[in-house]
């Protein structure tokens, strides 16, 4: 089963840059993109457009932006941590700001990692590469039907 990356990102440029960085890092996983919080939650919980089907497979990691239309990143994170199904899902905050409050809140709500998108593409590329490598290859994901 291919490992899925869920990228929650509203900016098409950032989406493209991330996709490019992942491709060039030879991380050939399926990239699912949600363009706001609602889409992300629909995908994760099988609601909205995903309703009726058998619930889509959970991603291996969620790359979550904070500033999102409709439902913002922190709320998505809270919902993920509240649901039994997604409680242990690795969530990496990938965002532009490094405001102290954002970092504190993200970890407070149970983010596994917080990465500030560097402006410099070389650094962004490196960060994305390391991120993919770590969460998809090195890290042992929690078993999908694991009990407490």
């Amino acid at each position: 089963m291919p490992k899925i990356i869920l990228l929650v990102e509203d900016n098409p440029d950032d989406e493209e840059l991330t996709r490019m960085a992942l491709e060039q890092s030879n991380i050939a996983n399926q990239l699912v993109v949600a363009h706001d919080g609602v889409e992300a939650l629909d995908y994760l919980f099988g609601t909205g457009p995903y309703a009726g089907q058998s619930a889509p497979a959970l991603p291996t990691v969620v790359l979550l932006d904070l500033k999102l239309p409709r439902v913002d990143g922190l709320e998505v994170l809270q919902r993920i941590r509240k649901e039994e199904r997604t409680r242990r899902l690795p969530v990496v905050i990938l965002t532009s700001s490094k405001e102290e409050q954002d970092v504190l809140d993200s970890y407070g709500y149970g983010a596994n990692s917080y990465i500030r998108k560097p402006v410099e593409f070389d650094k962004f590329f490196e960060a994305t590469r390391q991120l993919g490598l770590y969460w998809l290859v090195l890290n042992e994901a929690p078993p999908p039907n694991g009990s407490h």
């Binding site: 440029d13 950032d14 840059l17 532009s96 700001s97 405001e99 560097p118 593409f121 962004f124 590329f125």
Partner: peptide
């Protein structure tokens, strides 16, 4: 304002930088 600056001003910069770089 700072929050917006922090987020929103950086995003287009990243696009300019990223695509120039690409």
């Amino acid at each position: 304002f700072s929050y917006s600056v922090s987020h929103d001003l950086r995003t287009p910069l990243r696009a300019i930088e990223g695509f120039s770089s690409a």
